[in-house]
């Protein structure tokens, strides 16, 4: 692939990245966000604001609610690969009109020694719909 082709493909991928209905964040190993898509910020920022922190570091945002996560990442000695696969975790969002306890799911990939890739979403509404009593007869 030529550099021009790589630039072209990257430009094509950016709109897809922006429209993804799941949160994606590329961070350094300390959790500082390098790249992030809009859905991720939609989910992160209420938690950052309620803690009075900036939201520029994903592990800082999660520390208060998921303290074992940072240790889990630092103790995995693998050079790369999946650290967590669809891990459910409950996170609080004070003031959320649809329920303050949110059911999230996280997949975390270690890209290399210096980078992590987070995929996450708030599944609370999905689970509520899934568990709602069926009102129609088959």
């Amino acid at each position: 692939m030529t550099p021009e082709q790589a630039t072209h493909f990257k430009a094509q991928l950016i709109p897809l990245f922006a429209q993804l209905p799941i949160g994606v964040a590329d961070t350094d190993i300390e959790g500082n966000i390098v790249q992030v898509n809009p859905h991720a910020l939609q989910l992160i920022m209420p938690m950052a604001i309620q803690q009075g922190i900036s939201g520029m570091n994903l592990l800082d945002v999660l520390d208060a609610y998921w303290p074992e996560l940072r240790a889990l990442i630092s103790t995995r000695n693998q050079f790369s690969g999946r650290l967590l696969d669809q891990q459910p975790v409950q996170l609080p969002m004070i003031g959320h009109p649809d329920g303050e306890t949110r059911q999230f799911v996280f997949t975390i990939e270690k890209i290399d020694e210096g980078h992590l890739l987070f995929f996450f979403n708030d599944l609370t509404t999905y689970l509520r719909k899934l568990n709602a009593p069926r009102t129609t007869q088959p």
Binding site: A18, P38, H39, Q42, M45, P46, S54, G55, G95, P97
Partner: peptide
Amino acid sequence: CANNFLVAAKYAQPQLDEELDYVLT
């Protein structure tokens, strides 16, 4: 990225004047 209860939903109020720190992409 601002479509959540701390920003977008605030516009449901008839009167709104609020400043906040945020991160946009």
